[in-house]
Design a binder for these strands. Structure first.
Length: 318
DNA sequence: CTCCAGGGATGAT
DNA sequence: ATCATCCATGGA
């Protein structure tokens, strides 16, 4: 068993793994078990240290100068978090999120794993994405054991491409099965090279990702942020949209996706992806459904939101 | 532009 | 135990 300990003073492992950017780590024995590439890893934080262990080293590990390099790289311990946070805009909403999310990092995920997982994430909530990820791994991945925990690697594009839509549907993918299968076949055949497109500009990379079945604007931004280190990428889902609308557009009457996109790019800037992740995590953990408090009191029909949404019919004011 | 399938966990009644 | 809600892509 290989064990390492890394000084990580400005890092929060639990927040990082529970912030909706990665979906397969599970709590075990005071820490978390999961995989990094095809290695089973146990990770635990105590004091200002990150401890990690794995059974065997592999090629990927050696390329990262051992387990320490692999773990440091995956958890992005080299990101200058203080500088990143200092670059955020100063406003009450951002400040609250910044305080709440201290130590949360945007990790570096394997490209195919990230792309495939976010194709599965469409119209799903975090708990459900975790289920899908687990089923895909159990069915198509490779078994590993770590500290008496069973974990599975994420299946390669080739493995998924060799499967059928029916098999994927059995992993609770629903209509996403078709998209995942089609994209896996493009990756497996070499029609798209996920490593090569890493050299494209932000705009070109976004456009290229969107050509893949099941990849819309939001999923493309997630993949750019979590697998391609494009820290400006700003995925807008319903949570973020709600935060933006309430914090920065409370009196705006017409607001469409284009205006929101222009605003986030200008306002959050270079590390917009980090800002987005902090706003998202803060809202998701502390936000709670407004129906809990408002529901009957406000006379809202069945807890339906008061404010209009970009996705609600009737909200698009040209 | 508008409308809605899709599907399983989760929360409300 | 039933019923409504949550979600973002893609196609009609």
């Amino acid at each position: 068993m290989e064990r390492i300990q890394i000084a990580a003073p400005d890092f929060d492992l639990a927040k990082t793994l529970d912030s909706g950017q990665v979906f397969h780590w599970e709590q075990a024995g005071g820490g978390f078990v999961g995989t990094i590439g095809d290695l089973a890893i146990y990770a635990e934080q105590s004091g200002g240290f990150l401890k990690a262990s794995c059974r065997t080293l592999n090629l990927e590990c050696k390329m990262h100068s051992g387990l320490e390099g692999l773990v440091s790289s995956y958890f992005a311990l080299d990101h200058p978090l203080a500088e990143i946070c200092a670059s955020f805009p100063n406003d009450p909403t951002m400040d609250a999120a910044k305080t709440f999310c201290r130590g949360l990092r945007i990790i570096r995920q394997p490209k195919w794993e990230c792309l495939a997982t976010f194709i599965c994430s469409s119209m799903k909530q975090v708990a459900h994405i975790r289920q899908i990820s687990r089923k895909l791994r159990e069915r198509f991945g490779e078994f590993r054991e770590i500290n008496d925990n069973r974990v599975y690697t994420f299946p390669s594009a080739e493995t998924i491409a060799a499967g059928s839509e029916k098999e994927l549907r059995e992993c609770a993918l629903g209509y996403r099965a078709k998209n995942l299968l089609a994209t896996s076949r493009q990756v497996a055949s070499g029609k798209i090279d996920l490593e090569q497109i890493g050299s494209l500009s932000d705009a070109a990379l976004h456009a290229r990702l969107r050509e893949l079945p099941g990849v819309g604007a939001k999923v493309a931004n997630c993949v750019m942020l979590f697998a391609y280190e494009r820290l400006r990428a700003f995925p807008i889902d319903v949570w973020i949209e709600r935060v933006l609308r309430e914090a920065y557009f409370s009196r705006a009457r017409k607001l469409n996706a284009g205006r929101l996109k222009a605003f986030t790019e200008r306002y959050f800037g270079e590390h917009g992806g980090y800002a987005q992740q902090y706003l998202f995590h803060h809202a998701r953990i502390t936000g709670r459904r407004r129906s809990e408090k408002a529901g009957a009191a406000r006379g809202v029909q069945n807890g339906r939101r008061c404010g209009v949404s970009l996705h609600d019919k009737g909200s698009r004011v040209k």
